[in-house]
Computed example of a mutant assay.
Amino acid sequence: MTDYERPLSFGVSLDPAAQTWPRTLRLARTAEHRGLDLLAVQDHPYQPGHLDAWTLISHLSAFTDRISFLTDVADLQLRPPVMLAKAATSLSVLTGGRVRLGVGGGGIPDAIASMGGPARRGHDMVAFAEESLGLLRKALNGDAVRLHSPYHSIGGYQAGPVPPRPVELWLGAQKRRMLTLAGQQADGWISPLNIYVPPREVPARQRIIDEAAAGADRDPRTLRRVYNVIGVIGSHGGAPGLVGDVSRWVDTLTEWTVELGFDTFVLWPAADPEQQLARFADEVVPAVRESVAKIRGGR
């Protein structure tokens, strides 16, 4: 059993499709009104039907007051780390600290290349991501950034502005080298969807992160653990992921908290997003909070 005893957070993934952005705006405002913590936006700019993630998040931030935003995850190969940090800290200043920066090494090399990116793979991609995380950390902290390497040439940029609260840096990772990097450098791990990293495979990944964190003299309990959960609340034949009634969702997310170590769940609705968001926020989330609190309180 692995429960890091971190406070729970819940969010919803917003579809960046250009054709449905009015619905996306409604979902964002509904999620805030119903008390969720995060609005997550995927970053696949090579998709011609997708809005740019940062542009969409910036637009939505003007129509919300409390809820935070998460890039789930920003592609490091298409977003230079110093500029990415500038965007994140700028939006954090403008929104009063409502930004969580999720990043990834770039998982679709051919699509990245179609936009002019370098399409790194394997060890090359991991080494690039590792160097990028170090640069991001310095820039997010408002430090001076200077580095000349095969991957980056930065001549002494004085980073800023410094946001009202530190921008947390969460790494999307699935395989050993990137999971190790999450434990060594990131503030949290973002798992791919539950259909790509199923629950039975999570404990081994958590151990890799924990061992890497301990090896870097970091407390594994300080890292956030985010699970992207696709599914349907209710009956829906053929839907992927977690499908079942409210009680099944409550029992499952409780188990994934106290047994697998997740503390943050992002809903990816596989059916009617507005109806699913309402059920998730009103019925599932409060029951999971209560269930986890009872288990933790009874130890």
Results as ranks from 00 to 15, higher is better:
residue 277 L to G: 11
residue 146 R to Y: 11
residue 141 N to G: 12
residue 27 L to K: 06
residue 13 S to A: 15
residue 189 W to H: 01
residue 276 Q to C: 10
residue 260 L to Q: 11
residue 43 D to F: 12
residue 12 V to Y: 06
residue 45 P to Y: 10
residue 215 G to C: 09
residue 124 D to Q: 13
residue 202 V to K: 07
residue 263 D to N: 15
residue 26 R to S: 13
residue 125 M to W: 06
residue 12 V to Q: 00
residue 5 E to R: 14
residue 46 Y to E: 13
residue 23 R to A: 15
residue 23 R to I: 11
residue 284 V to A: 02
residue 227 Y to Q: 15
residue 151 Y to D: 14
residue 232 V to P: 01
residue 154 I to S: 08
residue 47 Q to G: 11
residue 106 G to M: 01
residue 18 A to F: 08
residue 45 P to F: 09
residue 279 R to L: 15
residue 192 P to Y: 06
residue 245 D to V: 01
residue 163 P to A: 14
residue 284 V to G: 08
residue 132 S to V: 02
residue 213 A to V: 05
residue 283 E to T: 00
residue 291 S to V: 07
residue 64 T to P: 06
residue 112 I to S: 03
residue 289 R to W: 07
residue 94 L to A: 15
residue 249 W to R: 03
residue 153 S to G: 08
residue 231 G to I: 09
residue 4 Y to R: 14
residue 2 T to A: 11
residue 257 T to P: 04
residue 109 P to C: 01
residue 92 S to A: 14
residue 77 Q to S: 05
residue 143 D to F: 08
residue 23 R to V: 13
residue 77 Q to G: 02
residue 85 A to F: 02
residue 61 S to G: 10
residue 195 I to H: 04
residue 269 P to S: 10
residue 71 T to D: 04
residue 203 P to V: 05
residue 219 D to S: 11
residue 278 A to S: 15
residue 145 V to R: 02
residue 265 F to I: 04
residue 178 M to N: 06
residue 199 P to A: 14
residue 185 Q to N: 03
residue 190 I to S: 07
residue 14 L to Q: 03
residue 215 G to K: 07
residue 93 V to Q: 13
residue 197 V to G: 04
residue 275 Q to W: 04
residue 90 S to Y: 08
residue 189 W to D: 00
residue 112 I to F: 02
residue 29 R to V: 13
residue 205 R to T: 05
residue 171 L to H: 09
residue 253 L to M: 12
residue 14 L to I: 14
residue 293 A to I: 02
residue 27 L to P: 01
residue 177 R to A: 15
residue 296 R to M: 07
residue 242 L to R: 02
residue 247 S to L: 00
residue 230 I to S: 03
residue 39 L to P: 07
residue 178 M to F: 10
residue 143 D to H: 13
residue 111 A to C: 03
residue 11 G to D: 10
residue 165 R to M: 08
residue 191 S to G: 13
residue 296 R to K: 09
residue 285 V to I: 04
residue 141 N to S: 15
residue 226 V to Q: 04
residue 117 G to R: 07
residue 73 V to S: 11
residue 179 L to V: 07
residue 159 A to T: 01
residue 146 R to V: 13
residue 24 T to D: 03
residue 234 G to N: 06
residue 55 T to G: 13
residue 101 L to Y: 00
residue 87 A to N: 10
residue 84 L to H: 07
residue 58 S to K: 01
residue 179 L to E: 07
residue 21 W to P: 01
residue 66 R to K: 14
residue 288 V to H: 05
residue 100 R to E: 14
residue 84 L to N: 10
residue 40 A to P: 04
residue 254 T to H: 05
residue 138 K to F: 09
residue 109 P to M: 01
residue 32 E to V: 10
residue 191 S to D: 08
